[in-house]
Amino acid sequence: MALLEVENLKVEFPTRKGVLTAVDNVSFNVEQGEILGVVGESGAGKSMTGAAVIGLLEPPGRIGGGQIRLDGKRIDNLSPDEMRKIRGRHIGAIFQDPLTSLNPLFTVGEQLVETIRTHLPMSAADAKKRAIGWLAEVGIPAPDRRFDQYPHQFSGGMRQRVVIALALCAEPRLIIADEPTTALDVSVQAQIIALLKRVCRERNAAAILVTHDMGVIAETADRVAVMYAGRLAEIGPVAHVLQKPSHPYTAGLMGSIPRVGPRPKRLIQIEGSMPRLTDIPSGCAFNPRCPKVFAECHRIRPELRPVADGAAACLLYEGVTQ
């Protein structure tokens, strides 16, 4: 049984003009110790999916349907307090901006000890020892001294290391990392990704890595899910999706990555932009921009079907005649 199973997840936002569907019928699994990359343009529903899993959708956003199961147990319908006990203890999260994720008025040590003691029955002294251990674990030099310092005394990269320590210090088995390196210097990004990968591997923790950086996905993830307009376009092993994308959208994404080489090719650009949630076209949401579009694409909404090692939601693979 997979560690996390998401089945037909729907995230809705009731507005005055009707209900908007930000995440529409998304299903995927995350296995024990696996790193799943989630990519897509801004507004594709990547972060929203992560927020739904950890139970932190901002109101009025709500789960409108489907199930989320952790270890086979449903967690999408838990009471707020039961869900709180899962956050941090079973599912950890890391957000985009390490500069603002830490409370400026408490020392790094206080925040670590507080998190550890919320979830694990432990004396203050033991928790402190463990917290210092975690600071060392995420590569912070002189952890005993750093323990008593405030976030503003750390650099951006160091703060993101602290954030990782905070997310992992109660030993959750799943980490949701929502663009963990976007706010950091390029030179620091690779270190943070490597660190995240190492601590997950060492603890056999799984991770959902939300990003729009294909390089990060290629280097870190085992499998990758591609989202478009709130739907899953394609999911499969990284090597497969990156090298032989099945969905025309994924192919377009891959084509738009600049490559360094002796004879640089012209960059492909996907024409147009992602539809707004208020006017998603009928049939396949990608149809206005798809280079391989045909008549049925405007009528039938494709389901996710197994293609090669993975799965794609495209009528090309449904045996619909062109």
Partner: peptide, 22 residues
């Protein structure tokens, strides 16, 4: 609405600690 409050929630802290401490 601050990010550190969202992160405090993600760490699973109790509401009391989030509201009255953080």
């Amino acid at each position: 609405r601050a990010d550190y409050i969202k992160f405090a929630k993600a760490r699973g802290l109790k509401n009391r600690a989030i509201h009255f401490r953080h």
